[in-house]
Amino acid sequence: MAFTYGFLSTHPPTQCGLATFNSALAAHLTGGGVFGGIVRVTAEGDDERPQPGVVHTWTPGGLGGWRAAATALESFDVAIVQHEYGIYPGRDGQDVLPLLRCLTVPSIVVLHTVLARPTPRQKALLEEIGAAADAIVTMTGTARDRLTAGYRVDTGKVFVIPHGAADHMRVPAQRRSRPHLLTWGLLGPGKGIEWALRALALLGGLDPPPIYTIAGKTHPKVLEHQGETYRDGLYELAARLGVSTAVRHDPVYRDQDSLSRLVRSADVVVLPYDSAEQVTSGVLIEAVAAGVPVVATSFPHAVELLSSGPGLLVPHGDPTELASAVRRVLTEPGLAGKLTGRTRGLIPTLLWPAVAARYDGLVRSLVAGRPAPAVAMLP
């Protein structure tokens, strides 16, 4: 028996982490003839043209609002809802709550953020979302622990399913003539790129000297409110530090094949994030799945995944420690292989087919617990 899947999220051509995640999960859950559809959430200025697989578009102030979106999801056996504060209409995205409450089909809410210090309103909203959902998915044990310790939720509803990753290993590693450091993802304040540039300036004496690629467009929200101020500041900082010729900006949003080639060309993925809140990082998962050593600041997901895995942790805002860790990976005999070798057995569990199978298993357990008349199965 196959179930039909409805997805509520931002979705391509919107360029954000949730859209990329939802697109990949939907593709792997609805392959092989399984039916599904996307209820796409858009913001002001998004491309509103019809997209394959999208059955309804929920726009701010659009006709029908959350009720029309809920009606579209009701035509499927299960609704999988991506949650991040602010992607849905209403203050803190509150309009997703009445939608969840009125669904009669089972619902799974996937939490991309669990704040350690939410506002009282954010805390109450997430608790009510958890109460309305049939299941809650976090992508790390850290997020689950933070959720169950800091919020009033039914712990029996909470499941940990990792963020999926593409099979980058199918692309042969293509090493460059100079050591290649890489950071990628949508760019904006908080990414900590300035610390990586300062660390690069401390890597003198390496022969040949490394090159550092900063890949990714400026985040659309940042671009809307601040323009390219952050990126321009990085250009200026690199010039002051004397490392401009070692820095390559690659401000494009890459497709999967192009991203795989880029990641597999790296000797070290550098994640110098400022945030101490980040319990889920898709870039971190993709780097681990690609078999590339990682040097990251001690944000929660990195602490969970790298402490005994394929990378080194450094303090936030410390370019000296960051440079020291990168230097170790590039020069210490056997260290890079030792780091990546620790997770060879883990990688298959992080790939999208395995992650989608876990969602499918969760869906089956939810549907099995529902009265038969509430389930419309495909033969």
Rank of each mutant, 00 (worst) to 15 (best):
F3W: 13
H11P: 01
T20R: 05
T30V: 07
A43H: 09
E44Y: 09
E48N: 08
E48A: 12
Q51G: 12
W58Y: 12
G62R: 09
A69K: 10
L73W: 10
L73E: 08
E74L: 12
S75H: 15
S75D: 14
V81A: 12
E84H: 10
G86R: 14
G93A: 14
Q94L: 12
L97V: 13
V110Q: 08
H112Q: 05
T113L: 11
T113G: 13
R117Q: 14
R121S: 14
Q122G: 00
L125I: 06
L125H: 07
A131L: 05
M139L: 07
M139H: 07
A149Y: 02
V153K: 03
V153G: 01
D154F: 09
K157G: 06
F159R: 08
I161K: 00
I161L: 07
H163L: 13
M169H: 11
Q174R: 12
L182D: 02
L187M: 11
L187Y: 06
A196G: 10
A199Y: 00
L200E: 01
A201S: 06
A201F: 00
L202C: 04
D207Y: 00
P209V: 00
P209W: 00
Y212K: 00
T213A: 03
P220T: 09
H225S: 15
H225K: 15
Y235M: 10
A239F: 09
L241G: 04
V243M: 01
V247F: 03
V247C: 02
R248L: 02
R254S: 07
D255C: 11
D255L: 05
L259R: 03
L259H: 06
L259Y: 08
V263D: 00
S265K: 02
A266D: 00
P272E: 05
Y273I: 04
E277Q: 07
E277D: 06
Q278L: 08
Q278N: 09
V279C: 07
S281R: 02
L284T: 04
I285D: 01
E286V: 04
A290S: 15
G291P: 11
V294H: 03
V294S: 03
P300S: 15
P300M: 13
H301L: 13
S308N: 13
L313N: 04
P319K: 12
L322F: 05
L322G: 06
A323N: 07
S324Q: 15
S324A: 15
R328A: 08
T331I: 03
E332L: 08
T340G: 02
G341C: 12
T343C: 09
R344Q: 13
R344E: 14
P348C: 10
L350F: 10
L350K: 07
V355T: 09
R358H: 04
Y359F: 14
S365R: 15
S365C: 12
L366P: 04
G369W: 08
P371L: 03
P371M: 07
M377E: 09
